[in-house]
Design a protein around this nucleic acid. Sequence first.
DNA 1: TATGAAACTGGGGTGGC
DNA 2: GCCACCCCAGTTTCATA
Lengths: 148, 148
Amino acid sequence: MTEELLDATDHEILGLLREDARRTLSDIAGRVTLSTAAVKRRIDRLRETGVITGFTVQVDHAKLGWGIEAFTELRFVGNTKVAEILRTTTRMPEAQAVFTIAGDPDALVWLRVRDMAHLQKTIDEIRRHHQVTGTKTLIALESWARGT
Amino acid sequence: MTEELLDATDHEILGLLREDARRTLSDIAGRVTLSTAAVKRRIDRLRETGVITGFTVQVDHAKLGWGIEAFTELRFVGNTKVAEILRTTTRMPEAQAVFTIAGDPDALVWLRVRDMAHLQKTIDEIRRHHQVTGTKTLIALESWARGT
DNA sequence: TATGAAACTGGGGTGGC
DNA sequence: GCCACCCCAGTTTCATA
């Protein structure tokens, strides 16, 4: 992993795909001045080497009725296992991302919920699954995420 | 927005596309027992109504050499405008997401960087752009995000 | 208003250069 | 890396309940 896997053209292609993963090969080829076959080979290689891990849709969660975003900082008793935290929280549909932290707090969970009652229920559920000594929840006023 | 926009089949289709946005129409059609034309119409409608906002690739940032994730909590002087925070941070390639918060801290920035020196530089840059009274940075040991 | 069947079109897969 | 071919996915149309 010390050697550089990608050249400038690969990065260009990655950028174009991040903007719109459904671009056709010829569209990309035109923009990076390569042939479609060449572009295809590069994309295939990006997938094989694991740089590209998949393709998804971007969804407007507010339109689905999940309009509230929050962060919950978690503090645990000393012997709680990091893997355990990830395992239980990642199963919750409300969890968008989970980070285990070096320091205080011990973990950070990005939540997306329908309303405040739902948020309350979700935090309670997290507390129930772990030996949580304390939580602090930050409610987002506005948010932005790369690629939306 | 009070009425339910989507039925069960729409949610099913959304779920399939989130797993893999490059599924063919006939693949989806087979799984939800509809014709390709019907599936296409539903996906088109999801795009028109803004539920689906786009299609992207999922990238393994560690493979690109951006292996470190961190959160920076920001505190500002009273008169700092929320819009201003979003505007400047979202331009930084290191920022993955930005949240303005009701309470303390005032904002939360999810960063992805190459190494500790890069993290330091990035935090410095954020501080330079705002009337920041304080920052606290949490470095992630492990992370998980929905759809990876 | 939503569906399914079928015809049309254009992009992706492949192999030769 | 380029070009040309073929096939299939995506799209459109139309009849239907």
